[in-house]
């Protein structure tokens, strides 16, 4: 028995998320007294994969088949399953991002494994195996028991502490046994968001609501985000109005995020919005309405005009960074 973590790559590079997963898998394996391995699919330099050694990953199985680039959900699930079989993994850890959400349920069926998605931190207990996750879109937590021998977990970001554990990482070539026929997703075009912090990776998120009044006022939020290295988000009315893309909508029907720091400018904080952000570590709210429910969820609040507050934030942030 062992723990396996699937390490995704972005054009051959790893991200903070990769290390978070590695550290989680290592700590999980320790608590169960099991060995831990990683699997990487697609072309990634050995030197990049060796970085996982900082967080206790001793072996990475790397299938450098270029076809994984198409992110074919079924093919990736098959390959992770092959890796799990090879190292006798009973628990597989995957990111709770777009690809992770797409692949984990498929893998779970293939492994006949109980799946828990968006797990918060390490297990509450290991026998029985119980993990905690957010339910009702942030309004509550559930303790879920995985009854099956095999288990697939996707990890909610920012839900546990990274622990360094330096080891030497062995990168081992691995053939998951897939053929070209296994890849059936045909990509016609890709539109990459460049130069920006992605919402799901962001440790700091700057969000605007209807109180921002118009799409053109987002330049001030962009400026603040740029200085702080933050991702941008918005409330539902904003994406409905077409001021910002749907991908930035956080809340009940959009994305659920949990950054270290969340700024809400001109967002009243309807229950549907709070559900998507309430797990943020620190929330800062700026709203002209002192009764806005966002202040109930916030740690720091300013009752006032967002257009008076933003320039002060921007200059204070510049000063702090310099």
């Amino acid at each position: 028995m062992s723990v396996l973590v699937y390490i995704e790559n972005w054009d051959g590079k790893l991200k903070k998320l990769s290390f978070e997963l590695a550290s989680y898998a290592t700590q999980l394996a320790e608590s169960l007294q099991l060995p831990v391995n990683a699997v990487s699919l697609g072309k990634v330099d050995e030197s990049e994969l060796k970085k996982l050694g900082t967080y206790g990953i001793e072996k990475v199985m790397s299938d450098s088949n270029e076809l994984f680039k198409s992110l074919d959900n079924r093919a990736i699930a098959k390959a992770i399953n092959a890796a799990a079989a090879k190292v006798g993994a009973a628990i597989v850890v995957i990111a709770n991002n777009n690809l992770g959400k797409a692949v984990a349920p498929r893998l779970a069926v293939r492994m006949k494994a109980g799946l828990v998605s968006a797990v918060q931190g390490l297990p509450v207990s290991t026998a029985p195996f119980v993990v905690k996750k957010i339910v009702f879109t942030g309004k509550a937590f559930a303790n879920i028991e995985v009854k099956s021998a095999n288990k697939v977990l996707t990890l909610a970001p920012n839900s546990f502490k990274l622990v360094e554990k330096a080891v030497e990482t062995l990168v081992e070539a691995f053939d998951s046994g897939l053929t070209a026929a296994d890849f059936e997703t045909i990509i016609e075009s890709t539109n990459k968001v460049t130069g920006k912090i992605l919402l799901q990776d962001a440790e700091i998120v700057v969000a605007g609501g209807r109180g921002m009044k118009a799409a053109e006022n987002w330049n001030q939020l962009e400026e603040l985000a740029e200085i702080l290295g933050a991702g941008l988000a918005c409330s539902r009315p904003v994406s409905d109005e077409g001021w910002r893309p749907h991908a930035e909508h956080v809340g009940q029907t959009g994305k659920i995020i949990a950054p270290n720091l969340y700024f809400a400018f001109g967002i009243s904080g309807a229950i549907q919005h709070l559900g998507g952000v309430s797990s943020s570590k620190v929330i800062v709210a700026v709203n002209k309405d002192p009764e806005a429910p966002i202040f109930e969820a916030a740690d720091y609040g300013i009752v006032g005009d967002v257009f008076k507050v933003l320039p002060q934030f921007i200059s204070a942030a510049k000063e702090m960074k310099s």
Binding site: A140, F295, G301
Partner: peptide, 24 residues
């Protein structure tokens, strides 16, 4: 393959620290 054993409500948040607009 899984069972919901129990539920909990999130811990209540501490009161929001209010700052004056002029001292943003």
């Amino acid at each position: 393959l899984t069972a919901y054993n129990s539920f909990e409500m999130p811990a209540p948040k501490a009161a929001c620290k209010m700052i004056n607009e002029e001292q943003a």
